[in-house]
Computed example of a mutant assay.
Amino acid sequence: MSKPSATTPTRLFRTVAIAEAITWTGLLLGMFLKYVTETTELGVRVFGMLHGVVFVAYVVTAVVLWVDRRWSAGRGLLTLLAAIPPLATLPLEWWAVRKGWLGDAWRLPAGTTRSLPDRCVGWMIANPLRGLAMGAVAVGGLTALALLVGPPTS
């Protein structure tokens, strides 16, 4: 029997969705300072990188929840797409909680399912510290890939 995770799907999604919105706000402020007031580009440099990392963390979180909660393709894609417009993760998080998309318990215990995505997510839930480390590696790898591709041109 595995230990239950202290982090619920609702708590995890809420935390990452709010962080994504906060970093979007910082990036928007940085863009205002860079392009409108032409005073500094420091905000874009700092919040651009930070927002990129949190954006990838949001995507990883959304995929984990998509698998665990058995969301439809439409719900999963809507959740992913909410990270693109500024601050859209906030109303989506509110809507998801209101409609019961997230839940207060994880569905997938480790080793009880057959599909590879279910097994991977179940393992992460059963081993939260290792799952967090695995998620951090995924975020780091995807962020490194984005850096190799290069920043958006200004």
Rank of each mutant, 00 (worst) to 15 (best):
T23F: 01
W24P: 00
W24E: 01
W24Q: 14
W24A: 02
W24K: 00
T25F: 13
T25M: 15
G26I: 04
G26T: 05
L27N: 00
L27D: 00
L27E: 00
L27W: 00
L27T: 00
L27Y: 00
L28M: 14
L28K: 08
L28W: 07
L28V: 13
L28A: 15
L28E: 09
L28G: 11
L28I: 12
L28T: 11
L28S: 13
L28R: 06
L29A: 13
L29I: 14
L29P: 02
L29M: 10
L29Y: 10
L29H: 08
L29F: 09
G30N: 06
G30V: 04
G30L: 02
G30I: 05
G30R: 05
G30C: 07
G30Y: 04
M31G: 10
M31C: 12
M31S: 15
M31P: 07
M31L: 15
M31Y: 10
F32L: 02
F32Q: 01
F32T: 03
F32P: 01
L33P: 01
L33Y: 12
L33T: 10
L33D: 08
L33M: 14
K34L: 08
K34G: 05
K34W: 08
Y35V: 03
Y35Q: 09
Y35I: 03
V36W: 11
V36Y: 07
V36L: 12
V36M: 11
V36E: 13
V36I: 13
V36S: 10
T37R: 11
T37A: 10
T37P: 04
T37D: 08
T37W: 08
T37E: 11
E38F: 10
E38K: 11
E38R: 14
E38P: 08
T39G: 08
T39E: 13
T39H: 13
T39F: 12
T39I: 14
T40G: 06
T40K: 06
T40E: 06
T40W: 05
T40C: 07
T40N: 11
T40D: 08
T40S: 15
T40H: 09
T40R: 07
T40V: 05
E41N: 12
E41Q: 09
E41L: 05
E41C: 05
E41I: 06
E41R: 10
E41K: 09
L42D: 09
L42T: 12
L42K: 09
L42V: 11
L42I: 10
G43P: 10
G43Y: 01
G43W: 06
G43S: 14
G43E: 09
G43C: 11
V44F: 04
R45V: 12
R45K: 15
V46S: 01
V46Q: 03
V46A: 06
V46C: 03
V46I: 15
F47Q: 03
F47Y: 10
F47D: 00
F47W: 15
F47T: 02
F47R: 02
G48W: 06
G48A: 08
G48Q: 09
G48K: 05
M49R: 14
M49A: 15
M49T: 15
M49L: 15
M49S: 15
L50M: 14
L50R: 02
L50T: 12
L50E: 02
L50G: 12
L50Y: 02
H51C: 03
H51G: 00
H51D: 01
H51S: 04
H51R: 06
H51I: 04
G52A: 05
G52I: 00
V53P: 10
V53R: 11
V53F: 13
V53C: 13
V53L: 15
V53T: 15
